Amino acid sequence: MTEVYSPTTAPNPKASCCLVPSEHLEKTPLLLKIAQVLLSFVAFVLEESVFICTSCTPLYFFEFVSCTAFLFTLLLLILLSTSLYQRIGITCWPQLDFIYTGIIAVFLLISSIVFAADNTGSSLERGAVAFGFLAMVAFAADFLYVLKEHGHPFKRGAPPQEDMESAAPEGEKLNPPVNGTE
């Protein structure tokens, strides 16, 4: 006996918890974001393990930046890899991610340089600085990936810049004459 009716429903791929790749997070940026979270977390943990500092201001600045990079990137990763981003009400995720990634890359670079220049030279401090630089490289790679693959996210909605006055007028009419009349 053959089946007369076939199933009319298909599984909904959007019903799963994880939405990667999605419109806001492709596979390569996902891997870069995971690397950013892990590297900034290791930098933060190593920095937290430092017990003695001669000048603590660079240590505290590095702590603030690495912790911020870890926590906010983890939040961004969770939001963009699930359907939670739809409930937030933010519509400019590519621009937000682009600005955030660039700013964190700059702050990680600055804090890593400052902490590398002023520390006691312990292996924990050197390790924290190394992971700070590695996290900065991951953020910079994500920033450059977006520029290379998608261009500047703020120029997407802008019309192409063409000189409208130098454009030649249209040679043909849009509607051809009907029955030989114009």
Rank of each mutant, 00 (worst) to 15 (best):
E3S: 11
Y5G: 07
P7A: 02
A10E: 15
K14T: 15
V20G: 03
P21Q: 10
P21H: 11
S22V: 07
E23N: 01
K27E: 14
P29F: 02
P29T: 05
L31A: 12
L32N: 03
A35H: 10
V37E: 12
S40Q: 07
V45E: 07
S49W: 03
I52E: 10
C53W: 03
T54M: 08
T57F: 11
T57K: 13
P58F: 05
L59A: 15
F61Q: 00
F62G: 02
S66E: 02
C67Y: 08
L79E: 01
L80E: 02
S81K: 02
L84W: 12
Y85M: 08
Y85P: 01
Q86N: 10
L96Y: 10
L96F: 13
L96M: 13
I99H: 03
I103W: 01
I103H: 03
A105H: 07
A105Q: 01
V106Y: 03
L108G: 05
I110M: 10
T120K: 12
G121K: 03
S122R: 06
E125Y: 03
G127Q: 00
V129F: 11
V129R: 08
A130I: 01
G132Q: 00
A138F: 06
F139G: 07
F139W: 05
A140Y: 08
A140E: 13
F143T: 00
F143L: 00
V146R: 05
P153K: 05
P153V: 11
K155E: 07
G157H: 12
P159G: 04
P160W: 09
A168Q: 13
K173Q: 13
L174M: 14
P176L: 13
